[in-house]
Write a protein that binds this DNA or RNA. Structure first.
Length: 430
RNA sequence: UCCCCGGUAGCUCAAUGGUAGAGCGGGUGGCUGUUAACCACUAGGUUGGCGGUUCGAGUCCGUCCCGGGGAGCCA
C-alpha cells in the first residue's frame, strides 16, 4: 500500500493510515479531543472520543506538548468540520519524543524573535508555504533551461579575484593566500558558454555590502544563463520566457501555498507578455512625469525603482544604462558608446530589480582598456582575456535573483523570509 | 556607515517621575465537535548593560549593546 501523506489525504478516504509527524496544536472539549498533526506535506486534524478508543490512548492526550513527534494511526474520513476537509479518527498514538516547552506559540511574535528561532520557525504554515514555492521556482528555472538547450556548468565558490570590484567581497584565507567568496558565476559562465554554447550556473553568491534593506542578503542564490552569439534583444526574450515559465509553474503546482500566503493570485494570473522594454532614457522621462528628477548617469535608487515598478502590471525591462554606472565587462552600444548594452528586469508592485544582465565586451583591446579604467589588475584576468584571444564571439547573459523572485511571487515584505537561513548584515545565526 | 523608532514576565504589549500589569504561552481543574476553542484557579520580573539627575527612575540625561524601519549600493 502507498505511504500516506497528508497532502494526498483525499486518496485515502475510508482507509486506515499511519501519520508519522509532529503535533502542530491541540484542542479538547472534555470527552472529545483534537490533534492537529503535520507531516511535512500538510496539516490534518485527528480526533478521538472517550470510550471509542483505548483508555490509555485517550488519556495520553493530556501529556502531549506542541511539536512532540508522534506516529498516529487511524481511519481517514471526509468531514466538513475539519480544517482541510479530511479528518483522522484516531486508533493509536505512539509518542516518539515529548517536546519541551516550544518557544513559538500559535500567537503573534516579532520578527527578531522568530529569526532567532529560524530553525523552528520553518515548521510554521507560512514559512512552509514560502519554502515550497521557492523550491518550485528553482525547479522551474532548471526545467526551463534544461529543456531549452542550456547545459548546467557550475561555477566555483572560491575565486582568486573580483569580478565587480573588491569592496563588496568576503575575503577568506586559502592556505595562506587571499581568496574570495564568489559574487557571481558570470566570468566562469562566459568560459563555459564558449565551450557549450548555452549554459547556466546555479548557486550562492556573496556580497559584503553593508546594506540593511528589505531587498538585501549577504548570501543569496541566483541562476545565471549565458549564451554564445546572443545579443541583448535575444537575452531579454529569454528573460521574459523564463519569468513566464516560472509564473505558470507556480500557479499550476503551488496554488494552495499562494492562497495560504494570501497572495493576490488573480494579479499573477493576469500577467501576459510582452513585458514592456524601456530604455534608461525613457525611464528617466517616466520618473520626470511623476515628479522625480534624476540626473543622467545616476543609477536608480530604491525610490526610483519603486516608482517605475508601480507604473506596470507586469515585470518590465530597463535597458541601455549609462556605461559609467555598470561593470567593466559590459559591452557598449556601438551607436551610442556612452550606453551599456545591459538590461535590468524589474518586478511590478514595487518589488524592483530581480534580473541583471546584458552583452559582454568581446574585443580584447577594449576589454584591456576597461580593466585599466576600472583599476583592475590585468594579470588576474588573463584567463578571462583568453576568451577574447581564442575565438571570441558576441555573447550575453543574465542573473536572476532567487530570493527577490520568491519575495515578489509570494508577496513578501522582506527577502529574509525567502531563504531558509538568511545571512544579513548583523545576522548570521542560526 | 548614516538617519529614525524601540528594548518591561517565555511571547505580544500596557503602566502622569510615586505600590510593575493584561492577553497569550506554562501548570492545575472543568466541558462530547473544537477551529489561534472556551471557563476557573495558579506560578512567573535585577524593566538590555554601565553611569548620572532626583526625596524617589520602567519613565529624565549620557554612553554602550541588541532589535526593527529607512538610505547609499545591488540579485
Amino acid at each position: 500500500m502507498k505511504r500516506f501523506y497528508i497532502e494526498k489525504a483525499g486518496e485515502f478516504v475510508g482507509k486506515e493510515v499511519t501519520i508519522k509527524g509532529w503535533l502542530y496544536n491541540k484542542r479538547d472539549s472534555g470527552k472529545v479531543k483534537f490533534l492537529l498533526l503535520r507531516d511535512g506535506t500538510g496539516i490534518m486534524q485527528a480526533v478521538m472520543v472517550k470510550g471509542e478508543v483505548e483508555n490509555g490512548v485517550f488519556e495520553c492526550f493530556n501529556s502531549l506538548t506542541q511539536e512532540s513527534s508522534l506516529i498516529v494511526t487511524g481511519k481517514v474520513r471526509e468531514d466538513k468540520r475539519s480544517p482541510g476537509g479530511y479528518e483522522l479518527s484516531i486508533k493509536g498514538i505512539e509518542i516518539v519524543q515529548l517536546a519541551q516547552s516550544y518557544p513559538i506559540t500559535p500567537k503573534e511574535h516579532g520578527v527578531g524573535f522568530l529569526m532567532d528561532y529560524r530553525h523552528l520557525w520553518l515548521r510554521s504554515k507560512r514559512q512552509h508555504a514560502i519554502m515550497r514555492i521557492r523550491a518550485e521556482i528553482i525547479q522551474a528555472c532548471q526545467d526551463y533551461l534544461n529543456t531549452n538547450g542550456f547545459t548546467l556548468i557550475d561555477a566555483p565558490i572560491f575565486t582568486p579575484s573580483a569580478c565587480e570590484g573588491t569592496t563588496t567581497l568576503f575575503g577568506v584565507d586559502y592556505f595562506g593566500k587571499k581568496a574570495y567568496l564568489t559574487q557571481s558565476g558570470q566570468l566562469y559562465n562566459e568560459a563555459a558558454a564558449m565551450a557549450f554554447g548555452k549554459v547556466y550556473c546555479f548557486g550562492p553568491a556573496f556580497r559584503a555590502e553593508k546594506a540593511k534593506t528589505r531587498r538585501h542578503l549577504t548570501e543569496f542564490w541566483q541562476v545565471e544563463p549565458e549564451m554564445a552569439y546572443a545579443r541583448l534583444e535575444e537575452t531579454i526574450e529569454v528573460c521574459e520566457e523564463l519569468l513566464l515559465f516560472i509564473l505558470k509553474r507556480v500557479l499550476e503546482r503551488r496554488r494552495e501555498e499562494l492562497k495560504r500566503l494570501e497572495r493576490d493570485i488573480s494579479f499573477l494570473e493576469g500577467i501576459r507578455p510582452p513585458f514592456p522594454r524601456i530604455s534608461y532614457d525613457e525611464a528617466l522621462q517616466i520618473l520626470k512625469e511623476r515628479g522625480i528628477e534624476l540626473e543622467w548617469g545616476e543609477d536608480f535608487g530604491a525610490p526610483h525603482e519603486t516608482a517605475l515598478s508601480q507604473k506596470f502590471d507586469t515585470p518590465f525591462f530597463v535597458h541601455r544604462y549609462p556605461a559609467q554606472c555598470k561593470a567593466f565587462y559590459m559591452k557598449r552600444d556601438g551607436e551610442a558608446p556612452h550606453l551599456a548594452l545591459c538590461v535590468d528586469g524589474l518586478a511590478p508592485e514595487g518589488y524592483g530589480e530581480i534580473i541583471g544582465g546584458g552583452e559582454r565586451e568581446d574585443d580584447l583591446e577594449t576589454l584591456k582598456e576597461r580593466l585599466e579604467e576600472y583599476n583592475l589588475p590585468e594579470e588576474a584576468f588573463q584567463w578571462y582575456l583568453d576568451l577574447r584571444r581564442f575565438g571570441s564571439v558576441p555573447h550575453a547573459g543574465f542573473g536572476l535573483g532567487i530570493e527577490r523572485t520568491v519575495a515578489w511571487i509570494c508577496g513578501l515584505s522582506h527577502v529574509r523570509e525567502a531563504i531558509p537561513f538568511p545571512r544579513m548584515l548583523d545576522r548570521i545565526r542560526p
